[in-house]
Amino acid sequence: MNQMTALEKDVETQKTKIAAKNVNVYYGESHAIKDVNVEIEDNTVTAFIGPSGCGKSTFLRCLNRMNDTIDICRVTGDIEIDGEDIYDSRVDPVQLRAKVGMVFQKPNPFPKSIYDNVAYGPRIHGLAANKAELDEIVEKSLRRGAIWDEVKDRLDAPGTGLSGGQQQRLCIARAVATEPEVLLMDEPCSALDPIATAQIEELIDELRDSYSVVIVTHSMQQAARVSQKTAFFHLGNLVEFGATGQIFTNPEDPRTESYITGRIG
């Protein structure tokens, strides 16, 4: 593990984008997230690490209310984005998800053309007035997803025909096409090979300029490489949250230390 690179990361403080206060999540009877408090900053990559089943993905999915689709899931506490409670009854989850984009663990392009994959979000949100504008959005998004050069000659080809890494970058392009402010990534590289992973990581670092990025990862190296802030979850608790360099070199909690040194997890 290269902890030195993590140490050198820029950790200047940005303004808070997402603030979670006393968040509890229940799946039926089981208590999946216990009293989590966390402040996620703008223009920062925040990594959630922790052993499987610790609740990091669950918490991530609370941030754009994807958990709403699960009937038995119940969320208490406050999650505020720019000071607005996203679980307020007046909030429409659809509008929220346009603001908080998401990239999933398994690349999941629609079984449609590459163009339609990216254009779908802007179309349903009415972001483009005409075809030319839509073309522009698609190109810009694919460039942001660092995949434009590879697909510009075959935008009509099905998105499902790309390689795994390309599919995932397509999904990132699709997520940024709706102009979100926050980008949630749920283990975006777990299905990819090291080269595709490196490309995605590079991309994540670039995305930091425009978005607040939250990434869930199993790989501690990845967390160390791409993030400025790291949160360690264990058994539904947020054990430790701080600057990535701090977490990886000088953790305060013995559980964090055990995990990053490989004794638990």
Binding site: M66, T69, R97, G101, F104, A177
Partner: peptide, 27 residues
């Protein structure tokens, strides 16, 4: 129809109905 397709549609801000009629139903 794999749930990942529904997730993908919801993730870009489609409503439940849009996810069903644009993606799930055609598949």
């Amino acid at each position: 129809v794999p749930p990942s397709i529904r997730d993908a549609a919801l993730g870009v801000g489609a409503s439940r109905m849009q996810a069903v009629f644009h993606h799930v139903l055609p598949l």
